[in-house]
Design a protein around this nucleic acid. Structure first.
Lengths: 231, 231
DNA sequence: TCATGTGAAGAGCTTCACAGCA
DNA sequence: TGCTGTGAAGCTCTTCACATGA
């Protein structure tokens, strides 16, 4: 991640038996917010219906893939016409779980943590950054936009009070695993980790390691030879 | 996204015929820097040989996958023993193109651009951040660590002088495509874009759109239901 | 004996092609 | 007619299993 996307980084696939839960792949889930953004734009321009072909042109995914993705969750379209933009948007919000603003915390209020806090406050209409956390007395008490920087000792209370289920980790590598343990212990269900180190979490906690240095290093491969252009 | 991961975001696969170029998948290329980091650690601890099984334990990838990945590029191991850490490291550096420090520019010196500049200067031993660029008189002339913030009008000269092939884009969405056009026009071959918008580039220029908001939104899916834990 | 390198099998995801319905 | 929804085919990547060689 970003994208890691994404490839699967684990020794064994242990996605077994989840009874009753239709398994939907990470790739599908990744594309949903992209559809969402296009729908937001269309609705802003009073477009009421869109076909999978038009969505394809605006997202870069094939029309078949878009139809398959949506079909995982139900039949939202009208044959011969397309998809109602408002209705589809509402369905996608429900699928992802964005129909209510998601409470998020940012752990680590250094440069990256500050940037990520601002980024989400300004650019992400579906999340609410409840607080940022740090250990340094120099930043605890500061505000990033309207977000207070609190001491990490207050984390558990904040997480449980606001029912926070998502944490963005932007702490130095040497503290990343400890921070992950702490947020997982506080009840957070998703960890979005930016430290250049793969943090582990107990079962039931979903970890996405963004790892910007690894991502950049892998991109350098495409700088030398002429290769295909991709996402 | 980064990952993106990362799924392929284009309407059609147009990876055709590249004559003589063995096609190596993005997934493989993504894993190489991970092996690299482990090898750096091992070498720092004077470990001279490592088996694919041990690499598996340290990376989370399966041993078979690691052997297959490396076999794409040659036979670097010794049967019955494993891989020589120094030799393997050196091979991976050559494969990715990291055997010489890669010159990188950062476009956009706001909070995110500043954080990304610092991140790469401090955490990425294989890149050299040549300069950051912005248009605002308030930041042009500043320094981020030792990196100068220059006006974008100087970009072409810097890119050609330092043979820069990689650009990190951290500009507002509304300027992202223009910035991408400019860096591509300057001769940059890889664009790592952080604006929440998919920028396009001419053939021959590899674009990776990180898109943190989309990534975060997709993660929220895993916050509600209990799902598998993954990278 | 031990771990690599690799053909074959398997799994998962994408594309194709078309039936079905407005 | 036009576009969705979907089985089937196709493709890519991963895992298995074992021959090979130090």
């Amino acid at each position: 991640m970003w994208e890691r996307g994404v490839a699967m980084y684990r020794t064994r696939l242990d996605r077994e038996n989840e009874p009753g839960v239709k398994k939907v792949s990470r790739s599908v889930i990744r594309r949903l917010p992209v559809y969402l953004r296009v729908l937001d734009n269309l609705i802003g321009n009073d477009v009421e219906v869109i076909s999978s072909r038009e969505l394809s042109e605006r997202t870069g995914f094939t029309a078949e893939q878009i139809r398959k993705d949506l079909a995982h969750f139900g039949a939202f379209g009208t044959k011969g016409t397309g998809y109602n933009t408002e209705a589809l948007r509402s369905e996608i919000l429900k699928i992802i779980g964005l129909h209510e603003k998601t409470a998020v915390i940012v752990v680590g209020a250094g440069h990256l943590g500050t940037a990520l806090t601002r980024y989400n406050v300004n650019k992400n209409p579906y999340t609410h950054v409840v607080a940022a956390f740090d250990t340094s007395p120099e930043v605890v008490g500061d505000k990033i936009l309207d977000v207070e920087v609190l001491h990490v000792s207050e984390m558990e209370e904040v997480v449980s009070k606001h029912n926070v289920r998502v944490a963005i980790l932007a702490v130095p590598s040497e503290h990343a695993q400890a921070a992950a343990d702490q947020v997982a212990g506080s009840g957070v269900k998703v960890i979005f980790n930016f430290a250049p180190l793969w943090v582990r979490a107990p079962d039931g906690v979903f970890v996405h390691n963004a790892d910007l240095s690894v991502e950049l290093q892998s991109l350098i491969y495409y700088a030398t030879k002429e290769r295909e252009k991709a996402h």
